[in-house]
Design a binder for these strands. Structure first.
Length: 213
DNA sequence: CTCTCGATTAGCT
DNA sequence: GCTAATCGAGAGA
């Protein structure tokens, strides 16, 4: 049985402006655990539960692309009002998806690191051909590969409910199931790399523990 | 214009 | 554990 079928229809709600603006870094990143990331791409639709996030934010955060309030064509979207998508190409190979949060001119974003697919399995199976299901979306590059997120989603408005958006379907994340850990791949950030700004829904991040499907 | 490097991953040894 | 892949942003000449 799928989670969506267990929930009443009324519980489905596309996140609105304040859901994004009020999520200040770093703790706001926790809010997105248990939310549904929905993506309509050229080749079809797929969605999944967000189970791991990382906070990036504040001009002081040396790991952030907006460190020192640096404004460039690429980073400008991070300064916009919360509720936009920030997608960029990393290592020339992988797309990484971020949720822009916080008020205008406050450069905060949440990187989505892991997702559990809840719809669009056949499409994702094609996109991730040859990869076992447990490795479909555990990693920010894999999340984008599985859901079909690309540069065409960059700067997209998450409030529109088209192409890419996030839904709250009433799924509750028990506080005791949330672990915090240092962010990955940001050793260059010195002491900022040590901050526990990664949020993991432990019961769901490991597919073997999932009650779903 | 040239050069460097990266919020990663897959495929090896 | 090691590293190639692959390309655009950003910095500097």
């Amino acid at each position: 049985m799928s989670v969506s079928s267990e929930l009443p229809r009324a519980a489905r709600r596309i996140l609105t402006r304040n859901d994004y603006v009020d999520r200040r870094s770093p703790h706001g990143a926790r809010f997105f655990l248990g939310k549904y990331l929905c993506v309509q791409a050229h080749d079809g639709y797929a969605e999944g539960i967000i189970t791991e996030t990382e906070a990036y934010g504040g001009a002081k955060d040396k790991a952030s692309h907006a460190f020192g309030n640096k404004r460039t064509p690429r980073t400008e979207i991070i300064y916009s009002l919360g509720g936009a998508a920030y997608v960029y190409l990393c290592y020339g190979v992988h797309h990484l998806f971020n949720i822009v949060t916080g008020p205008l001119d406050s450069p905060e974003a949440v990187l989505v690191r892991t997702v559990r697919i809840t719809d669009g399995h056949e499409l994702v199976r094609q996109r991730r051909y040859g990869v076992r299901e447990r490795d479909w979306c555990n990693g920010p590059g894999r999340v984008c590969a599985a859901l079909g997120i690309g540069l065409d989603h960059n700067c997209h408005d998450l409030l529109l409910g088209e192409k890419i958006w996030i839904e709250d379907r009433g799924l509750q994340v028990p506080p005791r199931q949330v672990e915090r850990a240092p962010r990955i791949g940001v050793d260059y950030a010195g002491t900022w790399a040590l901050k526990p700004w990664r949020f993991i829904w432990t019961q769901y991040v490991d597919i073997d523990k999932l009650p779903l499907s």
